[in-house]
Amino acid sequence: MNIIQSNSIPLDKVIMDISDSLNTKLIQECSEFTLEIPPEWGEGTIKAIDFQNGLGLIRYDCTFKEDLEIRFIVNDVHPLKFLYGLEGEFHHRFENEEELHKIKQYQNAIVASSGNNGHILYFKGNNKTAINSLEVTRFDFREQLKCELKTLEKTLSDLFNDVKAVKSFYFKGYYSLVIAHLFNKILDLGDGDFARRIFLEGIAYNMLGEEILHYQDSLKKDGDGTKGLLSRIEVKLIDEATLVIKNNLGDLGTIEDISKQVGLNANKLQDGFQKVYGKSVNGYVKQERLDLASYLLLNTDKQMGEIVEIIGLNSKSYFSKIFREAYGVSPLQFRKTNFTEKQQRIQKKYEK
């Protein structure tokens, strides 16, 4: 296993140390730094940008040829880190501890070491890994936001105010869809210029605000066992649930069956469909059945009983009832009519 080490703080010195260890050129544009992983080590980039008020951002987007540890070791209080797994997986441990914390895609960790103990990041060889690390120098950050920090939930307030790193802190979860969208915004920004710098700083603060909301949300649950925010992995599982529904309309199980199949509890599944699609799971299933029935009516000569069976219903009269409620005409009348804008949408949906 290869080991490189940074013995510096702040962020600009950190990435200079990494550049020196890799023996590669460091490109600087104002307060933004970029290095390319040399071919003998692997491929990819590491980028860093230092903002005001003790806030900075490092992005690792790389594949190393061999297992690699990056050790952040310096006799000083280390920044509070918000680590986000964007692709692949990596491990984190504190300098004074042996325990490795695995952080997978869509997961995030809030880590703060105690005293002057550092952090170690472990990258597995021949595995593409993308990480965003939002770094907070707590002394500088607190000086600017002393009043606002008083309003935080106690655990977070203590964490941000622990400028001497009396206690270590570790929390792992799945980051929210909002934070995932912020990562995409970072990727969409162009080359370094004044506007990019302002946008990046705004996104960094937005990320921190969303992370605070997400952490506070993780501490509480609604009466039905759900939380207020959807994580990126939960949205992925909800997407999987929609595929289960679409591929099994004719023989669809209960909501509990669907939730077990995708690995998300039924309450969270219901809550997720409401947030993503604006309707319950049953409401989504009903719309899918109506869309498929409409397509079959317009594009096949199947009899009504066949269509009812294909879409997973048992009663022709019930089908006619919900169809009339949705379209204002009976299924047979619908079959005889010309295309409307809604019908064209359905046509395109099933002919992709």
Rank of each mutant, 00 (worst) to 15 (best):
L213E: 04
T300M: 14
F51L: 04
Q5E: 15
T24C: 13
L230D: 03
E351Q: 12
T129F: 01
K352D: 08
S176K: 06
I70K: 02
E32L: 11
E43C: 06
V74F: 11
N247Y: 03
A130E: 12
K47D: 00
Q144E: 13
V235Q: 05
S8A: 15
S330K: 07
D224K: 09
T242Q: 10
G190V: 10
K302Y: 15
G44N: 05
A109S: 13
Q343F: 07
I179H: 04
L264E: 08
N267Y: 10
N299L: 00
K342A: 03
L121S: 13
D12W: 04
E36L: 03
L237M: 13
K172E: 15
L264Q: 00
I245C: 12
K172I: 12
S6W: 11
L55V: 14
F339N: 12
I3C: 03
S168M: 07
G263Q: 08
G118E: 04
R324C: 06
E309W: 01
Y84S: 02
P79S: 02
F141W: 07
K352S: 09
Y84L: 13
E89S: 14
S320E: 15
P10R: 02
K185D: 02
P79C: 10
I245A: 09
G278L: 10
D188K: 15
Q107R: 02
I9F: 07
I203V: 12
K104Y: 03
K220Y: 12
D140A: 11
M304W: 01
F123C: 04
G305C: 02
N108R: 14
N132Y: 12
D12I: 07
S133W: 04
N265C: 02
G85R: 00
G253A: 02
R196G: 00
K185A: 14
M16E: 13
G54A: 01
N299R: 13
D224L: 12
I15A: 05
K321R: 11
R142S: 01
V166R: 05
S157Q: 15
E211R: 05
I58K: 00
H214R: 03
I255Q: 08
Y350S: 05
K81F: 05
I198N: 04
Y84N: 08
Q105Y: 03
Y284V: 03
L298C: 09
L297F: 14
L269E: 11
E256S: 05
P39I: 02
L292W: 07
T63D: 12
Q333A: 14
N75Y: 12
K146Q: 14
E99K: 15
V285D: 06
M1F: 09
F273R: 02
G328N: 13
T34W: 11
D61K: 07
P38G: 13
L145W: 14
L80Q: 01
T34H: 06
I255N: 11
K227E: 11
E341G: 07
L332E: 05
